[in-house]
Amino acid sequence: EPREEEAEKYIKRANGDYDKAQELAKKDGNEEIAEAIKEYKKR
């Protein structure tokens, strides 16, 4: 799923820090991806 791939990219950029990844996504205006990262975190 493209959303998950995007989320993974942010998580990698944030060195595995989900909260930081979420912030990066929000900064880029990717609210949807920020949500996907939140879902990811719950797994």
Rank of each mutant, 00 (worst) to 15 (best):
E5V: 13
E32L: 12
P2W: 15
E31P: 14
E5W: 14
I11C: 05
E4M: 15
K20R: 11
K41C: 06
K42Q: 12
I37P: 00
E4I: 13
N15Y: 08
A21T: 01
E5C: 15
D17R: 03
G29H: 05
R43N: 09
E1P: 13
E8G: 05
E23V: 07
I37C: 00
G16S: 03
E1W: 14
L24A: 07
A25W: 01
N15S: 06
I33V: 12
Q22A: 13
R3W: 15
E39S: 07
K26T: 10
P2M: 14
Y18Q: 03
E35K: 10
R3P: 11
G29R: 04
A21G: 02
A25S: 02
K38P: 02
K12G: 05
D19M: 06
G29M: 05
E39N: 08
A21I: 01
E39W: 10
A34C: 04
A14L: 02
Y10V: 01
E5H: 10
E6N: 07
E39I: 08
I37G: 00
L24G: 02
K41W: 09
D17C: 04
L24H: 04
E8T: 08
E31W: 15
E23P: 01
A14F: 04
E5L: 14
Y10F: 03
Y40K: 05
I11Y: 03
R43F: 09
D19R: 06
E6Y: 06
E1T: 14
K27T: 09
N15P: 01
K38E: 12
Q22P: 00
A25C: 04
Q22V: 15
N15I: 03
E5T: 13
G16Y: 11
R3V: 13
Y18L: 10
A7F: 11
E6T: 12
R13T: 06
R13E: 10
G16K: 03
A21Q: 00
G29D: 05
I11D: 00
Y18M: 07
N15W: 06
E23M: 11
E6V: 08
D19F: 06
L24W: 08
N15G: 13
K41E: 05
A21M: 00
E1H: 14
I33A: 13
K26V: 11
N15A: 07
D19W: 06
K42H: 10
R3I: 15
K12Y: 09
R3Q: 11
A34E: 05
Y18E: 02
K41R: 10
R13A: 12
I11T: 01
R13D: 07
E31G: 08
K38F: 09
I11G: 01
D28A: 05
Y18I: 05
E39K: 09
K41H: 05
P2F: 14
K41P: 02
K9N: 10
E23G: 05
R13I: 09
E32Q: 11
Q22N: 04
R3M: 15
K9F: 11
D19S: 06
D19H: 06
A25I: 01
I11M: 06
E1K: 13
A34M: 09
Y10C: 02
R43W: 10
E32F: 09
K20C: 06
E6K: 06
Y40M: 14
R3E: 10
K27H: 09
E4R: 11
K9W: 15
Y18A: 04
K9T: 08
E31H: 14
E32P: 06
I37M: 02
L24M: 13
I33G: 03
G16M: 05
Q22M: 15
K41V: 06
R13K: 09
G29W: 02
K42A: 12
A14H: 01
E6A: 11
A36G: 04
E8A: 10
Q22H: 10
